[in-house]
């Protein structure tokens, strides 16, 4: 636990001092939302709030790629790996700290993205339930962060890692996005059945649990030597 706290502090301090990742993610998410707004038609919103809600999730996934691609970049570029691996601590602490840092970075980015989403896309007072969307985003971010930390560790010393990571990650994002989109869209009034919030959130919690267990168990193999 001490190792986890120290590593998380290191990740947050590095970001606070270097401001390398979060500002880039915020600018990216704003640009992507503008792009989607223009893509759905400048004046009239093609597909309405439902299409926009689906595309919000696509933007969320692509933004998280930025965080994942830069995961362990400092460790790689400044030769910190050897120090981390030779420390007498459980290696899963490295994974847990990286996942927690990514989770926080995604949270900050979405705190900017959500108000913009409301501003850009919502018309006629119809919007997905804020509580459902926020809970779904938090659970999805957790899953993305935990799985992403494992995959980022996997490709950290592989050539063409920036290209490879999204390719490895996207198949895992598909079930997540399909449930999250359906749940968010079905919370837009008038609600005529569809996927209940509890059922959707239950699935996201299951997703998080599975990748928490797999990430914790497999990270040790990824970073050995």
């Amino acid at each position: 636990m001490r190792a986890y706290r120290a590593l998380l502090r290191k990740d947050l301090l590095l970001e606070l001092r270097g401001r390398e990742l979060v500002p880039a993610m915020v600018v990216f998410v704003v640009g992507a939302l503008v792009l989607v707004r223009l893509g759905l038609g400048g004046e009239r919103l093609a597909g309405g709030t439902r299409a926009a809600t689906g595309l919000l999730w696509v933007v969320v996934v692509f933004t998280s790629m930025l965080a994942l691609v830069r995961s362990f970049a400092q460790e790689r570029e400044h030769g910190i790996w050897d120090g981390l691996l030779s420390a007498p601590a459980d290696r899963s602490a490295i994974w847990a700290a990286r996942a927690s840092a990514t989770f926080l970075f995604l949270g900050v980015t979405q705190a900017v993205a959500l108000p913009l989403f409301w501003l850009f896309f919502l018309q006629d007072g119809r919007s997905p339930s804020l509580a459902v969307l926020a809970a779904a985003l938090a659970l999805a971010d957790l899953g993305v962060a935990m799985l992403g930390a494992l995959l980022a560790g996997l490709v950290s010393n592989v050539r063409a890692r920036e290209v490879l990571l999204p390719v490895l990650f996207l198949p895992f994002a598909l079930p997540l996005v399909s449930v999250a989109v359906r749940m968010s869209v079905d919370s837009i009034p008038p609600q005529n059945g569809g996927l209940g919030a509890l059922q959707g959130l239950g699935f996201l919690a299951l997703y998080d649990t599975i990748f928490a267990l797999l990430g914790w168990a497999l990270f040790e193999y990824v970073v050995e030597d």
């Binding site: 079930p175 399909s178 359906r182 996927l195 599975i210």
Partner: peptide
Amino acid sequence: GLIPLSVIGVHVA
């Protein structure tokens, strides 16, 4: 992990 999640996820969605 992905196979059961895909089966459940797609079915739920």
